[in-house]
Design a protein around this nucleic acid. Sequence first.
DNA 1: AAGGTAAGTGTATATTTTACACTTATGAAG
DNA 2: CTTCATAAGTGTAAAATATACACTTACCTT
Lengths: 233, 233
Amino acid sequence: MPATQSLHLSVDCVVFGYNDSGLKVLLINQKGLSTSPETTPRSQLPGDLILMNEGLDQAAQRVLFELTQLEGVYLKQFKAFGDPNRVKDLKDRAWLQSVRHLPDQRVVTVGYYGLVSLQDYEPRPSSFAGGVQWSELSEVGPLAFDHNSILDEAVETLQDQLESQHISFELLPKKFTLTQLQALYEIVLDKKLDKRNFRKNVKKMTHVVPLDEKQTGVMHKPAQLFSYEPQKD
Amino acid sequence: MPATQSLHLSVDCVVFGYNDSGLKVLLINQKGLSTSPETTPRSQLPGDLILMNEGLDQAAQRVLFELTQLEGVYLKQFKAFGDPNRVKDLKDRAWLQSVRHLPDQRVVTVGYYGLVSLQDYEPRPSSFAGGVQWSELSEVGPLAFDHNSILDEAVETLQDQLESQHISFELLPKKFTLTQLQALYEIVLDKKLDKRNFRKNVKKMTHVVPLDEKQTGVMHKPAQLFSYEPQKD
DNA sequence: AAGGTAAGTGTATATTTTACACTTATGAAG
DNA sequence: CTTCATAAGTGTAAAATATACACTTACCTT
């Protein structure tokens, strides 16, 4: 029989935030780092060890809340990351030593991606985190651990699942215009779409319903407002 | 700070096997069970704890080999299962006590699905397992732990990814006919396909290449043989 | 030589996807 | 109150893709 297994399990959340100016990802700054040369502080995805009595989805919700005060975010598991050396980089050791009982322990993590409208959610650092920011996706620098890979895979997953999973609506205000919805698709998929064809497709989505309400206060023809109605088929 | 985390991590493999008679899944029988009434032996997916110095994909390969002697199988991670009570069912306790140092420990598992041609692979029980069989998918009874859910999710994943992931070819002999390929699609997707349209689609798949070889020994027009050539685009 | 079997092949129709440009309702400025 | 600027909203034709469908061919067996 092999030596007794001893490792940690964490969740990491890749939370995308959207407003008209682009797609962002939620990062936290490692707190309380000694600022010696080789421990330049790096940002990381919000993540932490799961507790002994909670499920994975539940852990993702809790951890995200504890680190960023974000609550009720749609989070979906997308992949487990288990390279035996994923937390062994020297640059990450100092920080681990400051927060873990067993900083040398191997950590396997389960990745979640999530989606919020930047208008509806205001993240705030909790006592556990040194700072929370939304970073423009294209401007994310080197992150701690293997978090750049996790982020990359989350982006791919988001693109793949945007259409099938009804997740776009998590990124928009409750009431939205079709132009907003289209802009979101264009940003996430990173390509331009034709307005008329896009609207034809939306007409087929029975879960996108027009409200008895129009945009106000705009200096152009006011747009019809829509909302998302999940339905039990 | 929370109590120190202490849990186990395993991998479970859902290996599908295919031949002309249908789609099967590889199960092992729990070995050495005391046969008291409430511990009726149940079958389970091949799975075990990961080792401290191996990655997840690597663990899946090793565990499958150790339990079934199957080697070099295409295995793809599809989901982590982490319900805190997934190994707490009374029916599973007896067996866990016989194989684990810490039978009460929580176990999170990472699910892999795999694909083999029944003609190319002959599973044999290793010393660790009490028996290995291929079970017709529709005839799988109650499995240990949450393995029925894991199996169900694997089937869905297989259907979703059959076309995009080039995985069909893992289920066929190295040299195959288009009729075989079509039969496979029909069984996995569980619907009939049109022969001519199917062949039109295959012509577009540049990774399916005709060989200079035909079927022999059949009492009808011999079919062209094809093989799968993965390509680096 | 005849019969049985699965392989192999093309075309017409329906559906889906794409490309593309003008009119309309509002607020702001004069 | 007229004019202008702005984004909303709308239809059609052409191209690409997907579907439905039936006969001929090559080999083996008897």
